[in-house]
Amino acid sequence: MKRTLLAVAALAAAVPADAFWLGEFYCYLEQRRAEQNAWPAQYVEQDRRNAAAPFDIMIENGWRRQNLLGSHHFNEDCTQLTQAGRLRVQWILTQAPPEHRQPFIERSLDEQTTQNRIATVNDFAMQVVRDGSSITAQETHLTSDGRPAVTVDFVNTQFRENMPTPTLPAATPAGASE
Score class of each variant (00 low, 15 high):
175 G>E: 13
138 Q>W: 06
162 N>A: 11
121 V>H: 00
59 I>H: 05
113 T>W: 01
156 N>Y: 08
77 D>G: 11
10 A>N: 15
156 N>T: 06
155 V>K: 13
63 W>E: 04
174 A>E: 07
102 Q>K: 08
98 P>S: 15
11 L>T: 08
95 Q>A: 10
29 L>T: 07
130 R>Q: 14
86 R>W: 02
28 Y>V: 06
63 W>T: 02
30 E>M: 07
170 A>G: 07
96 A>I: 03
48 R>G: 10
95 Q>W: 04
29 L>P: 06
14 A>H: 03
176 A>D: 14
103 P>H: 00
8 V>R: 01
105 I>C: 00
7 A>N: 14
125 A>Q: 03
173 P>T: 09
21 W>C: 11
23 G>D: 05
120 T>E: 00
117 R>Y: 02
87 L>E: 08
97 P>R: 14
11 L>R: 11
97 P>W: 05
2 K>E: 12
102 Q>N: 09
26 Y>V: 13
127 Q>Y: 05
30 E>N: 11
76 E>K: 15
20 F>H: 13
135 I>Q: 03
125 A>K: 00
44 V>K: 08
18 D>Y: 08
6 L>E: 12
124 F>L: 02
63 W>N: 00
23 G>F: 07
57 I>Y: 02
10 A>S: 14
56 D>K: 15
175 G>P: 05
165 T>E: 09
45 E>P: 00
30 E>S: 14
54 P>L: 07
94 T>K: 05
104 F>G: 01
129 V>N: 03
150 V>S: 13
139 E>Y: 09
49 R>E: 07
43 Y>E: 12
2 K>I: 05
92 I>M: 01
116 N>P: 04
155 V>F: 03
95 Q>K: 12
151 T>R: 06
104 F>M: 03
135 I>T: 06
56 D>L: 12
7 A>V: 14
74 F>C: 01
117 R>T: 01
124 F>C: 00
154 F>G: 10
58 M>A: 11
78 C>K: 01
111 E>R: 12
85 G>A: 06
132 G>K: 09
77 D>M: 10
141 H>P: 04
168 L>K: 07
34 A>Q: 14
97 P>T: 09
163 M>N: 09
77 D>L: 09
65 R>T: 13
146 G>S: 05
7 A>S: 12
2 K>G: 07
134 S>M: 11
122 N>D: 15
46 Q>S: 11
156 N>P: 02
20 F>R: 15
80 Q>H: 15
34 A>F: 08
27 C>V: 11
136 T>A: 14
8 V>N: 04
53 A>V: 05
144 S>D: 05
97 P>Q: 11
77 D>F: 04
32 R>P: 02
97 P>V: 11
47 D>E: 13
108 S>W: 03
117 R>A: 02
170 A>D: 13
61 N>D: 15
44 V>C: 03
8 V>D: 00
53 A>F: 14
94 T>D: 00
33 R>N: 13
29 L>N: 02
110 D>C: 03
49 R>N: 04
113 T>A: 02
25 F>T: 04
57 I>R: 09
15 V>Y: 10
30 E>L: 12
131 D>I: 04
65 R>E: 06
162 N>H: 07
144 S>I: 03
124 F>Y: 04
166 P>H: 13
18 D>G: 09
107 R>V: 01
13 A>V: 07
165 T>I: 15
47 D>S: 14
70 G>A: 03
135 I>C: 04
12 A>D: 04
14 A>F: 03
21 W>P: 06
140 T>A: 00
81 L>C: 06
108 S>K: 06
